[in-house]
Write a protein that binds this DNA or RNA. Structure first.
Lengths: 238, 238
DNA sequence: TAGTGGTCTAGACCACTGA
DNA sequence: CAGTGGTCTAGACCACTAA
């Protein structure tokens, strides 16, 4: 198909995009029902959903499972070179952060986690699963895996707090070298259901391996971000 | 819908995923025709395409416009902190790079480009559009915009070469500070048609603003990567 | 409980690719 | 030219949300 050819899907995208960019639909505003929209554009729901899917891929709109389509708020700037943590980063950008702990327990480490934490086979690790919001919107699902040798009794603390702060104040451990790996992919089942979005929605998976001031691997994070919630910003010095 | 519920789409995804991961379909291998697959899974093409779309979102398979679906090759590691360029980066990872120049000319700068290059309104800039391949597969569409003051006559050179090398050898200009901005989004029309993929396919847009050894903004790149072709790797020192 | 989104069926025609 | 992917129609039922 030629790109300049008029196409129902493209036409719908353009029309909706225009409405959104001109602010006729306020950010975080809800779009009309799919059946209403398909009627409005004189097409079927399948076609209409194809168009919505493209706008979702662009990051202009997003959906909440069975609740409908919404205009995406601005992206959060995420700078891996700046040592910060979720709450500080969000607050600095005049947004409202929130964290909830989904689970926190000692679990047998998977093969993948053993490798990341440089632990022998069949090790146990602390697993902390959290969901995080910006301005009320669920944007991030994280699994933290901590080497238990360095953090005895950490499950007793309030884990909605920043782990960074907890490490420093309770264990005298600060972050040293950090390795980031960022992969554009789709949300897996558990992340998707936590963020209340459809399985297979586009996402950015960020894996962090954190060392302390002595160079020891202390923990790793598996982060699943809604793909439209962030942009990565890196300033490389001379 | 519950995530553990059996679903046609999920079942198809799992089945195909298994085949791919066990190497029954070789990387870069072509999948059977959609009609064949939908028959194989006893479903409709719409449903089958929904499943293929999810695997595409995960980065496991990709499509070439009207040519069919293929298994994705491994991702290229992209490290913004390492000063390198496309050909060197690809070759280092034992892959085969290739570049073709789509166009190279002096154009009036858009508002966006003026801002990025810190130029006054109505400036002219050199625009170089290129497409790049890894092992023959189109993975990257780039638009370079150069401040013409620093690169007189550059359009006369062979622009399939690395611009980095050209800057150094012909103009004595080396990169200093660089700013990266990476955004998960969808391919725009021109990028999509160049890469011969469907408009709206998931992509990673990387904007680079490059300064020279004196801190002057010399050029910027707008890169559109197939989302499944790379992963970003960043090592943050202590 | 009404309305909504999630999923699926069973076709159709067109434009393009590749032999 | 045959086969393929791209697009679209016109429905249907179910599970869930929100009132």
């Amino acid at each position: 198909m030629r790109d300049d050819a008029p196409r129902t899907v493209t036409a719908i995208c353009r029309a909706l995009q225009e409405q959104i960019e001109h602010g006729l639909l306020p950010a975080a505003g809800k779009l009309p029902a799919e059946r209403k929209l398909s009627e409005l554009f004189a097409t079927t729901r399948i076609t209409l959903r194809e168009a919505l899917g493209q706008l979702e891929a662009q990051g202009l709109i997003y959906r909440e499972e069975r609740r409908g389509w919404f205009v995406s708020p601005p992206r959060l700037a995420y700078n891996p070179l700046v040592r910060s943590h979720f709450h500080a980063m969000v607050a600095e950008q005049q947004r409202q952060p929130a964290t909830e702990v989904l689970s926190a327990r000692l679990v047998p480490a998977s093969v993948e986690i053993c490798a990341l934490l440089e632990l022998p086979a069949l090790s146990s690790v602390y697993q902390v699963r959290r969901a995080r919001r910006i301005d009320g919107r669920l944007v991030l699902y994280v699994e933290h895996y901590l080497n238990p040798a360095y953090f005895p009794g950490i499950l007793e603390f309030d884990l909605t707090r920043s782990l960074t702060d907890l490490y420093a104040s309770e264990y005298g451990i600060r972050y040293g070298r950090v390795r980031f790996d960022m992969v554009p992919t789709a949300l897996q089942a558990d992340a998707a259901s936590t963020l209340r979005v459809a399985v297979g929605s586009p996402a950015l998976r960020i894996t962090r391996i954190n060392r302390d001031q002595h160079g020891r691997v202390i923990d790793c994070d598996l982060e699943f971000w809604r793909h439209d919630a962030i942009h990565i910003s890196v300033e490389v010095p001379e």
